[in-house]
């Protein structure tokens, strides 16, 4: 079984985001970038399925600038077998929309014929939570989103999903798209020998033109602003003072 894992290069989750002074977007110049945390979980799951003998090949794919090579090398160091980079942007500030990403991934799927696509449920930059569902739609494949447990058996995946109010378990026939949530696993750190080995693993470069996909955006960003800032209130000295303030000042008790 072959697994395809899309990975996105995003601002590192520990970095404080700064909105550009001209309101044109978020400043990504000279900012630490990393693999999207949810995508790391997807890579980890794919590698675990390979280690269990369920999968025999894990292919990582990334769409963005040339710099996404680093992100793919991370996936290879974690244990992916090979990588495909689709260079679709010159500037890191040019984000490719989920619909265009899904179209590119569909083209990769048509070529690679994976049995399973494991993707992060959302990227922590634009927080869209859409690419996996859109790819499933374009392929006419089933989708199992927000997975906290994945079991593959007999050409089917049984997936437990994180939904409002609890968990839902569904079964999908393969090939399928599974998007992963936080609690599925804890991704490993790549060891130094594996980082060295990853440098020799194949990384193929493509462009959207190779696949005949138009990546022009459908949404025009007209402004990016800082959110309203909430002011700090007062410190209270005791539980009694807190209760008194909540009753008499805020009127919420």
């Amino acid at each position: 079984m072959k697994i395809l894992v899309p990975v996105k290069r995003v601002i590192d989750y520990n970095v404080k985001v700064r909105v550009k002074a001209d309101g044109s977007g978020v400043d990504l110049a000279n900012v630490k970038m990393s693999m999207n945390p949810f995508d790391e979980i997807a890579v980890e799951e794919a590698i675990r399925l390979k280690e269990k003998g369920v999968a025999d090949e894990v292919v990582a794919v990334s769409i963005g600038t040339k710099k996404n090579q680093e992100t793919l090398r991370t996936a290879l160091a974690m244990g992916a077998d090979r990588a495909i980079l689709i260079v679709a942007a010159e500037d890191v500030h040019d984000d490719i929309e989920p619909l265009a990403v899904a179209k590119l991934l569909k083209a990769v799927v048509d070529e690679e014929r994976p049995d399973l696509v494991l993707a992060g449920k959302q990227a922590i930059d634009n927080d869209m939570n859409a690419t996996g569902q859109m790819l499933a739609a374009l392929l006419g494949w089933p989708q199992a989103t927000f997975a906290s447990e994945v079991a593959i058996e007999g050409g089917r995946a049984t997936v437990t999903r994180e939904v409002d109010g609890g968990l839902q378990t569904i079964r999908v026939g393969l090939p399928a798209i599974v998007t992963v949530d936080l609690r599925l696993n804890e991704p490993r750190y790549a060891s130094l020998p594996n980082i060295m080995k990853a440098k020799k693993k194949p990384l193929e470069e493509k462009t959207p033109q190779d696949y005949g996909v138009d990546v022009s955006p459908r949404l025009a960003v007209t402004a990016t602003a800082e959110p309203d800032v909430r002011k700090a209130g007062v410190m209270v000295a005791s539980v009694d003072e807190l209760i008194s303030k909540l009753k008499n000042e805020a009127g919420v008790l």
Binding site: V17, P98, L99, D127, V221, P227
Partner: peptide, 30 residues
């Protein structure tokens, strides 16, 4: 068509506000 997720404000029939980067920025998109 594209999806417009988590819309927090409606500017007009084509233009919407939504939080990005965990609410650290609010984007207006048309």
């Amino acid at each position: 068509v594209m999806i417009l997720p988590d819309v927090s404000g409606i500017v007009d029939a084509d233009t919407f506000q939504r939080p990005i980067y965990a609410g650290n920025a609010i984007q207006t998109v048309r």
